[in-house]
C-alpha cells in the first residue's frame, strides 16, 4: 500500500503535466472546430513523437546528471548522412543502421570526454556538436535545395497501422521499454543513483562512468534515429532540421517533471511533456497573434501551466513549497 502511495506521489508531476496537456487540448477543441479531428490528432502525435525521440536520450543523460547539447547536430547528421548514403546506392536498411551506429559512437565520444576526462557535459557536448556541424558543412554532403530523403525514411514517417501512425506505435513501444528499464532493472536504478549523488553511487558499488557513458551513447543513437524520421517527414534533409529540437528536448523533460540537475524524473514524464509542448506549439498560432505576442503568450502559458498543474516542486527549489515537500518526503 505504501508502495502504491509512493508511486503515486512520484508521478504527481507527470499527472500535472498530463493535466496541462488536457487543458490545452480542450482549449484547442473549443476554439477551433477541426482541432479534435482524427487527422489533426494523428498529426500532433507524429510531431510529439519527434520531440519524444529527440528527448529520449536527453532524458537518460539528464537523469544521470548530465546534459547533451549535441542532440540537434546529430539529428541533422542522421537525416543528411542517410540521404547521402542512399544516394550512393547503399541498401537503405543498412544505411539507417550505419547512421544510428555512428550516432552511438559520437555519443560514446561525449561519454568518454565527460567520464574519463572529467569535462563538464555542457562544454563537451557543445564542442562535439560543433565538430559534427563542421563535418556536415565540410565534405560537400549538403545540397542547396536540401537532400532527397530515401523511401525508407519517408515510409516510416508517413506510414500508418490502421488509424495510428507507425511512428506513434514505435514511440509507444520504445517508451514502454525505457520505462521498464528505468524502473525495473539494475541499470535503471544505477542511472538514478548516479544522477542523484555521484559519490554515494560510487560507494554503493556502481560503475558511474560506465552508466554515464551508456546514457550518452543511447542519446547519440536516438538523436540520429530521430534525424532519420524527421527528415523522412519533411521530405528533405537540411543542416538546420535539428535546431528546434535542442530546447524542445530539454523543455519536454522539465515540463514532465524531471530535475535538470539529475536523479529525478521518468521517461513517461518526458512523453507527456512532449505531448504538452506539441499541443502548445500547434494551439497558439490558431489565435492569430503577431510574432511578439506569440512569443510572450508561449512563455506565459508554460509558466502558468507548470505552476498551476504541478502540485509540488520537484525539490531542489528554495521556496516554502519545495521545503514542505522535502519534509513530507522525510516524514
Amino acid at each position: 500500500m505504501t508502495g502504491v502511495l509512493a508511486a503515486l506521489r512520484g508521478s504527481r508531476t507527470t499527472l500535472g503535466a498530463a493535466l496541462f496537456a488536457l487543458v490545452l487540448f480542450v482549449v484547442g477543441t473549443v476554439h477551433t472546430a477541426g482541432f479534435a479531428s482524427g487527422d489533426n490528432i494523428r498529426q500532433l502525435l507524429v510531431f510529439a513523437s519527434f520531440v519524444g525521440f529527440a528527448a529520449l536520450g536527453q532524458t537518460l543523460v539528464v537523469l544521470g546528471g548530465g546534459l547533451d547539447l549535441s542532440v540537434p547536430w546529430l539529428i541533422s547528421f542522421g537525416g543528411i548522412q542517410l540521404a547521402v548514403l542512399c544516394a550512393g546506392g547503399m541498401n537503405q536498411v543498412l544505411a539507417v543502421v550505419v547512421c544510428v551506429v555512428v550516432g552511438l559512437l559520437v555519443g560514446l565520444v561525449n561519454g568518454i570526454g565527460v567520464t574519463v576526462f572529467g569535462v563538464a557535459p555542457i562544454v563537451m557536448t557543445l564542442g562535439v556538436g560543433g565538430l559534427v556541424q563542421a563535418y556536415l558543412l565540410a565534405v560537400g554532403l549538403l545540397k542547396a535545395t536540401g537532400n532527397d530523403v530515401p523511401t525508407i525514411a519517408s515510409g516510416v514517417a508517413n506510414g500508418a497501422l490502421g488509424p495510428i501512425p507507425v511512428v506513434a506505435v514505435v514511440w509507444l513501444v520504445v517508451a514502454l521499454v525505457v520505462a521498464v528499464v528505468l524502473a525495473r532493472t539494475r541499470f535503471g536504478r544505477s542511472v538514478y543513483a548516479t544522477g542523484e549523488n555521484d559519490v554515494v553511487a560510487v560507494l554503493s558499488g556502481i560503475d558511474t562512468g560506465r552508466v554515464r557513458m551508456i546514457t550518452y551513447a543511447v542519446s547519440g543513437a536516438a538523436s540520429a534515429f530521430a534525424g532519420v524520421i524527421i527528415s523522412g517527414y519533411i521530405g528533405k534533409a537540411y543542416l538546420e532540421i535539428g535546431q528546434p529540437f535542442l530546447f524542445a528536448s530539454i523543455a519536454a523533460l522539465v515540463i514532465g517533471g524531471a530535475s535538470i540537475l539529475g536523479g529525478r524524473g521518468t521517461y513517461f514524464g518526458t512523453v507527456v511533456g512532449a505531448i504538452a509542448l506539441t499541443l502548445l506549439n500547434s494551439l497558439l498560432p490558431l489565435f492569430n497573434l503577431d510574432p511578439a505576442s506569440l512569443s510572450i503568450a508561449y512563455g506565459l502559458v508554460i509558466l502558468v501551466g507548470v505552476r498551476v498543474t504541478t502540485t509540488r516542486g520537484t525539490g531542489r527549489g528554495w521556496g516554502r513549497r519545495a521545503r514542505r515537500a522535502e519534509e513530507s518526503e522525510a516524514g
Binding site: 523543455a251 510572450i296 508554460i302 520537484t314
Partner: peptide, 18 residues
Amino acid sequence: VGMQPFIVTLATWTIFDG
C-alpha cells in the same frame, strides 16, 4: 514561488524575447 530556475527562465526567456 519556488519553481525550478530552469523552467522559469526558459519561459521568461521567450517572454522577454517577445
